[in-house]
């Protein structure tokens, strides 16, 4: 496994946020490499730039300086359409607030990335959605509307959706931040187990030190830079 190629490489990432006058230097040159089959956690005080980094790595936003390579493709100078395509194929997002489309059922939410990719028939997509939802323990609730699910259930649907196109990278921003202990554990275990099983890289931001310790690598962050483990 160590001989495998990295799923994601980031070098010298810098990011300024805000308008010209009160612009903030949020990221000050972050380097990062994610390997397949491993889990990573970013920890650090609120406001140190964790979410900002995740959005940049997920190509939801553009860095001011630095280079991001995903699946061997440089995304730095790619067009918006190409970046969106890379996102669709290689990246699965899980956010703190379970972002599901309220008018759609659990299965339909999971099918969204697949129908955009357009590589499977509707029957196949439905099949895969059922399978993924069973894996996250929601096999009996596939046809529930998103609004008819509890917070923990919605977050599990979001995990299933993030996995739908078998992306090489899963980015999770405080995925358990809004859940009780039980659900936190369920979702966390799910992410780590799936990463190992499917050979994906999982990068998650978390405030929970216990959970962070259970990932393969812990990346402490401070003031827009990764720092050596300083054991607070």
């Amino acid at each position: 496994m160590p001989s495998l190629k990295p799923t994601l490489q980031a070098k010298g990432i810098q990011k300024f946020l805000g308008s010209d006058l009160n612009s903030v230097h949020v990221l000050r040159g972050v380097d990062l490499e994610l390997m397949p089959g491993h889990s990573y956690s970013i920890v650090g005080p609120s406001g140190c730039g964790k979410s900002t980094l995740l959005y940049l790595l997920g190509l939801l936003d553009r860095q001011n300086e630095g280079e991001i390579v995903i699946g061997g493709r440089s995304a730095t100078h790619a067009s918006e359409v190409e970046r969106t395509e890379i996102r669709n194929m290689h990246i699965g997002f899980v956010f703190q607030f379970h972002f599901l489309l309220a008018e759609f059922t659990a299965a339909e939410n999971v099918m969204l990335p697949m129908s955009k990719l357009g590589k499977r028939s509707p029957e196949e997509m439905r099949e895969i959605a059922f399978q993924l939802l069973s894996e996250v323990g929601l096999g009996n609730k596939v046809n529930r509307l998103a609004t008819q699910l509890s917070g923990g259930e919605q977050q599990r649907v979001a995990v299933a959706r993030a996995l739908a196109n078998q992306p090489s990278i899963i980015l999770a921003d405080e995925p358990t931040g809004n859940l009780d202990v039980n659900n936190s554990n369920v979702v966390f275990e799910l992410l780590c187990r799936l990463a190992r099983q499917h050979g994906q890289s999982v990068l998650m931001v978390t405030h929970n030190p216990d959970l962070a310790k259970r990932t393969d690598f812990v990346l402490p962050m401070k003031d827009g830079l990764f720092v050596e483990d300083e054991k607070s």
């Binding site: 939801l60 969106t84 395509e85 699965g92 972002f99 489309l101 990335p113 955009k116 196109n165």
Partner: peptide, 16 residues
């Protein structure tokens, strides 16, 4: 806007 952001994050383009 929230739904739009979700769709964009899972790979829907601006023209989609």
């Amino acid at each position: 806007t929230k739904d739009i952001a979700i769709l964009r994050s899972i790979g829907y383009t601006q023209s989609d």
